[in-house]
């Protein structure tokens, strides 16, 4: 059960989430259940909760049409650009956020369209190449995060858990591996924070 070209384009037009779409391609191919598809979409896109919570201070007072549009366009890239711009200029610029968000939307849909046209001609040979391209993209996104000990521990836990769970074909491997990585990272981060707080307390005495 694969996607036809209209369904593939509709994913980019409406779902508009790279990691969710790429993993969904695999899940559709494997004939995963409706609930499995939704759980994995939720797990993969949960990081947007953080962006949404962080943007709340700037966006909540805007009119509904702005809140809906900026919400729809809130991607990793738009968030990163908007935060950088806000830091540089000292104020949140809704037009900057909208334009950068929409640029990524247009580019992503254009790339999908080109991919569909090329993919329909190249056939099966490209499947493995596409799989690797997905993995390489995720790697390029993760590595810059890996700067502190808690993130190193988080990434290693998630990787080892995912390996073991996939090896034993355990259900909800993605959810379990992600949750363990997050919990380990969070615990170490909490300890680090506490140590720092004790440190400043001692220093001020």
């Amino acid at each position: 059960m694969g996607l036809n070209i209209w369904q593939a384009q509709a994913m980019s037009l409406f779902v508009f989430a790279g990691a969710v779409q790429l993993s969904a391609l695999g899940l559709f191919g494997a004939g995963a259940s409706f609930s499995a598809m939704l759980t994995s979409s939720l797990v993969i896109s949960a990081r947007h909760l953080l962006y949404s919570a962080d943007m709340r201070q700037h966006i909540l007072q805007l009119p509904t049409k702005w809140r809906l549009s900026l919400g729809f366009l809130l991607t990793d890239e738009m968030y990163a650009l908007s935060v950088a711009h806000t830091q540089k200029t000292g104020a949140f610029d809704r037009h900057y956020a909208l334009i950068s968000g929409f640029t990524f939307y247009a580019l992503w849909n254009l790339a999908t369209c080109v991919g569909i046209i090329l993919g329909s001609q190249a056939g099966d040979l490209t499947t493995l190449g596409l799989e690797f391209a997905i993995a390489a993209t995720f790697i390029a996104l993760v590595v810059p995060y890996v700067k502190t000990h808690p993130v190193v521990a988080c990434v290693l836990t998630s990787a080892i858990m995912m390996f073991v769970l996939t090896y034993y074909a355990i259900n909800q491997a993605l959810l379990l591996a992600t949750a363990s990585g997050m919990i380990v990272g969070f615990i170490l981060d909490t300890q680090h924070e506490q140590r720092q707080r004790n440190h400043t307390k001692k220093a001020s005495l």
Binding site: A46, L50, C154, A159, T178
Partner: peptide, 30 residues
């Protein structure tokens, strides 16, 4: 609801954890 700083600190680990978990099967279980 507002999301507190503890929750934000937890969610900070969401992106690296999930992207890693998505990469592992592609690489080790091609």
């Amino acid at each position: 609801i507002r999301i507190n700083d503890t929750m934000k600190r937890f969610l900070k680990f969401s992106a690296p954890a999930v992207l890693t978990a998505l990469t592992v099967p592609i690489i080790f279980f091609p």
